[in-house]
């Protein structure tokens, strides 16, 4: 059995978090934090999005449902959040339009927190994307969705161990049933305000010559843009000749990320 299917004893209490959730729909003119919603296709991103915003973004049981990004808002604990539902992708490394939209937002949109929605029944495949997102940002949360289905398939997942291995909060949910949403909200608030800080796992098992080249280039990138939070990832993209990143390097667009990040670090 997994923990989410048990009734939360706090559910009935008026002081409980979920009571504080104000679904703002698309009214989000001013907001305090930006939340990005990433994940593989068909993991229930749009369902999580709907649960948080009260919107009715079309959901469907097949990959590729969301092809552009949808935006909505919610208020929680006195703060206003803008949430962006990114297209579902399996990776951020190939150059299809949907992956580009997702990647560009994570990189240049500088969300305060990225919620990576993960299909608990297909953890291994989904972690590929999680690891790639963690190369870009360390302000991330894994939303371990579809826990109900995992239970039905006889899977049990040690989310604490997973959280430790990944170095970021892992929240089990069953968004279709509304389970775990309050815990997710709490984690979003904590990470975006900087109360909880992740130390995300970074890919280590890289072939030697590649690792050396990446290391050398990372140093050069960091010299150029001090304070860039994802210099290693930028280096890898440059190495692959990713034209979008080469362009951002050339134009100085990366510099704005570095400055923004320094600002965030100062306020946190």
């Amino acid at each position: 059995m997994n923990e989410t299917s048990e009734q939360n004893p706090c559910e009935g209490c008026p002081a409980h978090n979920v009571q504080n959730l104000i679904k703002l729909g698309i009214r989000m003119d001013q907001y305090d934090y930006v939340v990005a919603l990433a994940g593989n296709p068909n993991t229930g991103k749009s369902t999580v999005f709907n649960a948080l915003t009260g919107l009715r973004q079309h959901t469907g049981n097949w990959p590729g449902k969301t092809v552009t990004r949808a935006e909505g808002g919610f208020g929680f604990g006195g703060k206003r959040f803008k949430i962006v539902d990114l297209p579902g992708t399996y990776s951020l490394l190939s150059m299809s339009t949907d992956e580009e939209i997702a990647r560009d937002f994570l990189l240049f949109g500088q969300p305060d927190v990225t919620v990576i929605v993960v299909d608990a029944t297909r953890l291994e495949r989904n972690l590929n994307l999680v690891l790639q997102v963690l190369e870009i940002t360390d302000r991330a949360i894994v939303c371990l969705n579809l826990m109900d289905e995992a239970g039905r398939h006889g899977l049990s997942i040690d989310e604490r161990r997973l959280g430790r291995d990944l170095g970021i909060p892992v929240i089990p949910t069953a968004a279709r049933q509304g389970l775990g949403i309050q815990e997710l909200l709490k984690a979003i608030a904590e990470v975006s305000s900087g109360i909880v800080k992740g130390t995300p796992y970074r890919i280590k098992d890289v072939p030697k010559p590649l690792a050396r080249a990446v290391e050398r280039l990372t140093k050069r990138v960091r010299d150029e843009y001090p304070g860039l939070p994802n210099a290693r990832w930028v280096a890898m993209r440059l190495l692959e000749g990713d034209q979008r990143i080469v362009g951002a390097m050339r134009s100085g667009e990366l510099g704005s990320i570095a400055r923004l990040n320094e600002g965030l670090e100062a306020t946190a």
Partner: peptide, 30 residues
């Protein structure tokens, strides 16, 4: 550096990501 590296390092990178994802998932799922 790209020319110095052997061809297909994109695939090598993907493979390492897959390997590590498999290892982490393996530890968490029973």
């Amino acid at each position: 550096a790209r020319w110095e590296l052997e061809e297909g390092f994109h695939d090598l990178l993907m493979e390492s990501i897959y390997r590590e994802a498999a290892r982490i998932a393996d530890g968490a799922v029973t």
